[in-house]
């Protein structure tokens, strides 16, 4: 998207928000329509449960409606929507039994005293194209993301999955830019390690066949 397009979209959205603040219900429809997939997608990826994601989406849409006058425009409207979505998802997650988190450090790369790779690294990156379409691969990927600790997971979902900029993620989560970068890097390392186990096993099976 070009800079001009982005600017135009932002202006349209700002106008919609103003209309909604003035009580225009048509503006509400448009806002709900343009955000519900984002809200649902993010909450589903955080909770991996259709009913919960539906509840959260309803709650967020309702909050947007009821609290629109508390939105002061200090941050982007979309950042406000993402924050409400995250809060609602976390409330929902907290009300459920929590799975014990895996320690991320155990899955980070290990090096010897001189700083050289200690483990054997296989390059499975060229095999992924054909594998990506299998449901088994998709399940492995989803499970790996589910295992990420909360702090790293949210940064990963906003930055790498939603495709938001580092600056925007730092605004939404009220984190510094270096903190966002460091969490994202750790999340990618963790996921790389998790996926490596799966793809390397696949390669060796294929080699045997």
């Amino acid at each position: 998207m070009s800079f001009t397009q982005q600017k135009e979209e932002r202006e349209i959205e700002e106008a919609l928000v103003k209309d909604l603040q003035a009580g225009n219900l048509e503006a509400y429809d448009k806002i709900a329509e343009s955000y519900q997939k984002k809200i649902y997608g993010l909450s589903f990826n955080l909770m991996r449960n259709q009913m919960d994601a539906q509840d959260v989406t309803q709650e967020v849409l309702l909050t947007l409606f009821r609290k629109i006058n508390t939105f002061q425009g200090k941050s982007a409207f979309s950042s406000w929507v993402y924050r409400i979505t995250l809060n609602a998802s976390y409330m929902k997650l907290r009300s459920k039994k929590k799975e014990p988190n895996v320690s991320i450090d155990e899955l980070l790369p290990s090096f010897n005293g001189a700083g050289f790779q200690q483990e054997k690294i296989q390059d499975w990156s060229e095999n992924t194209e054909s594998l990506l379409f299998s449901n088994e691969t998709k399940d492995v990927i989803k499970k790996a993301v589910d295992l990420l600790p909360e702090k790293e997971k949210v940064v990963f979902l906003l930055r790498d999955v939603e495709g938001l900029s580092t600056e925007k993620v730092s605004e939404i989560l009220d984190l510094t830019v270096p903190a966002v970068k460091s969490r994202l890097h750790r999340a990618r390392l963790f996921l790389r390690k998790k996926l490596s186990g799966y793809f390397e096993e696949y390669r060796s099976k294929k080699g045997e066949a």
Binding site: G41, N45, W124, S125, T128, L132, T137, K138, I141, K142, A144, V145, F156, L157, D160, V161, G163, R188, L191, R192, L195
Partner: peptide, 11 residues
């Protein structure tokens, strides 16, 4: 690849 795979799957 990890980044692309996860993005494409979760999107």
């Amino acid at each position: 690849s990890t980044r692309t795979l996860c993005r494409d799957t979760l999107n």
